[in-house]
Simulated scan of single mutants.
Amino acid sequence: MLDTSRRTAYNAAHAAFRDTVRRVFAEHMTPHLDRHEAEGIVGREAWLALGEAGMLCPTVSEEYGGLGLDFGFNCVVTEELAYLGSSAGFTLQNDITVNYFERLGTEEQRRKYLPGMVSGEIITAIAMTEPGAGSDLQGIRSTAVLEGDEWVVNGSKTYITNGQNADCVIVVAKTDPSQGAKGTSLILVDAGTPGFERGRNLDKIGQHSADTSELFFNDCRVPRGNLLGGEGRGFIHLMEELPQERLSIAVSAQAGAQRAFDEAVRFVKERTAFGKAVIEFQNTKFVLADLKARLQVGWAHLDWAITRHLAGELYTDEASAAKLWHTDLQWECCDKALQLHGGAGYMNEYPIARLWRDARVQRIYGGTNEIMKEVVGRSL
């Protein structure tokens, strides 16, 4: 269990909410972790349970069925999910897609989607990445051409979180290819729309319980009113959401790092070698002492970043630096924790194996850590 007794980013309301999150996860997630991993997807029953408990999109205003809470409540869910060791796509909906609907959506779009996103009846995804365009979103080739009162969407997307579950996908497409990034828009495509097909639930190294998919659009026609935000402003809208998205990844990374550390401490206290507990060896203590110091710094920095974001003062370069630092820390903790497990760490029956596998992609999505360095470097 995460020790939150000395956290500075949260108040009593956040603490009470965390108790609810832990209770719901203990009932609806923990007993099913292995099944979620085996099936490659988290079923809708879990989404509905979280929705009923107020754990989905808690920042949505009461007008649309939400609780109207601050982003700190999202962070509580993200931390507890990561510490649990689940890669369910709840945080994508909580921390990323819902903002697009609430901030950019028309009144009709908000009323159509937000209540269901809060209840868990509507699951969303955002389709940015393409086979030939990853961190460089300006290179996307999918198009949406206006014909009369309909957008005709063509193209393919890959590595899309919630792709199998999604009831609605925010598709990043070029509405005016001649304008480059300025010709990018966001188009809503509902499940069941003719021309919209899901491909494989992709076979990944880790994060097996996250349904990550290929999506295909072949002359997929949607109403003109499915434009989300301003026409030609899609790239700007995406950039506006990057600080929160990258902070969300940093939050999950820190909690995942802590879980890996805790697993290592537990293991080396129980495991013996040469007649004594593994924790009694100097190398073990030094490795864990170094990780503990880094985790201490990490939690302090994370609370600083969350507090700045709640005040509307977290800049893109700061969020990018947080994503870079905390995901690097997560990988270091997971890798060293696995090493301290010895051969047991390579066995899937031990939690550290899953934590190690799931951590690897954190330095890739949300913009690779190499791109994070470029973003921070440009701010100098």
Score class of each variant (00 low, 15 high):
T4L: 08
R6D: 13
Y10C: 04
N11D: 14
A12N: 12
A16Q: 15
R22E: 15
R23E: 15
R23Q: 14
V24N: 04
L33M: 11
H36W: 13
I41G: 01
C57L: 05
T59E: 11
T59S: 14
L69A: 05
V76C: 11
T78G: 14
A82F: 03
L84Q: 08
Q93R: 00
D95Q: 07
N99C: 03
R103P: 01
L104I: 01
G105Q: 11
Q109K: 01
Y113T: 06
P115T: 02
S119N: 07
S119F: 04
S119D: 14
I122W: 00
I122Q: 00
I123N: 02
A125R: 07
I126V: 13
I126Y: 06
G132H: 09
L137W: 05
G139P: 00
L146A: 13
N154Q: 09
Y159G: 05
T161I: 09
G163M: 01
I170P: 05
K174D: 02
T175I: 01
D176W: 02
P177A: 05
D190A: 15
R198L: 14
I205N: 12
Q207L: 10
N218S: 13
N218M: 06
C220N: 03
R221D: 03
V222G: 04
R224K: 15
R224N: 08
L228H: 08
G229A: 10
G230W: 02
F235H: 12
I236E: 15
I236R: 11
H237N: 12
P243I: 13
E245N: 02
L247W: 04
S252V: 00
Q258W: 07
A260G: 14
D262W: 08
E270K: 12
T272M: 12
F274H: 09
G275A: 02
K276Q: 14
K276M: 15
K276D: 14
A277K: 15
I279E: 09
L288I: 08
L295M: 05
L302R: 02
W304A: 02
W304N: 13
Y315G: 08
A322M: 10
K323Y: 07
H326K: 01
H326Q: 15
T327R: 06
D328S: 13
L329G: 11
E332V: 11
C333A: 14
G345K: 04
Y350H: 13
I352V: 10
R354L: 01
L355Y: 06
W356Y: 12
R360I: 06
R363Y: 06
M372G: 01
M372R: 13
K373T: 10
E374M: 11
G377L: 03
R378F: 12
L380T: 09
